[in-house]
């Protein structure tokens, strides 16, 4: 017996396996970042008066990074849509743009980190920077993880397009869902850490 519903949806749920899987995983991710956001609020509320930095980061770089991530979200959607419309070349093109965006995001992020380090600011400096480095660091790990999966789908994993196009399209969709979630987390991180 083969494992059913790998590429076709199960009739009563209307979903294929990987889609159930990724949403469950994202649910646990909501709790992971949710706990960190709760910690952020507690540390901020509990900080001694005047000890919490307001807008200490480079807002320009943050805004650009927000734009980069949102743009990569739309390009990964385009790559999936291209597969849906049977254009493998289109998929490759837009997936490549997505990958370049993730690299750009990480480069900008490391410039930000580097400038903090060069000013002698580390996670141990105070609780603001502790939670800043933890939240953005964990988010960056998610960006790296997502980018690695995307790289696999763009490179060696794309062979599956020839053997099982439907399943491959699903994989791109699932990877996209994760990528949008990473984007969504950043949409909260940006105002919370940079602006408010």
């Amino acid at each position: 017996m083969e494992i059913p519903y790998n590429s076709t949806p199960r009739p009563d749920t209307g979903l294929y396996n990987a889609k159930v899987g990724i949403w469950l995983f994202l649910a646990s991710e909501v709790m992971l970042f949710g706990a960190l956001f709760s910690s952020y609020i507690l540390l901020r509320v509990g900080a001694d008066p005047g000890m919490w930095h307001l807008r200490p980061l480079n807002i320009w770089l943050g805004t650009i990074n927000t734009g980069v991530l949102i743009f990569s979200s739309i390009t990964i959607l385009m790559s999936w849509a291209n597969l849906k419309m049977n254009s493998f070349e289109g998929f490759r093109k837009f997936m490549l743009i997505t990958l370049l965006c993730s690299v750009a995001f990480l480069v900008i992020k490391s410039i930000e980190y580097g400038s903090k380090f060069s000013h002698g600011i580390y996670p141990k400096t105070d609780t603001y920077y502790a939670i800043y480095f933890t939240l953005t660091g964990l988010h960056a790990l998610h960006v790296i993880g997502g980018a690695l999966v995307n790289l696999y789908l763009w490179g060696p994993g794309s062979k599956m397009w020839k053997t099982d196009p439907e399943r491959f399209t699903n994989r791109v969709e699932v990877s996209g869902l994760f990528w949008h979630f990473v984007d969504l987390v950043w949409i909260f991180l940006f105002p919370v850490l940079y602006l408010l």
Binding site: A27, S28, M31, L32, A35, S39, T134
Partner: peptide
């Protein structure tokens, strides 16, 4: 749903 908050806490304690 209950484990991720401990994972978050674990990461923070590791820091």
């Amino acid at each position: 749903l209950a484990f991720p908050p401990l994972e978050a806490a674990g990461i923070m304690q590791l820091m």
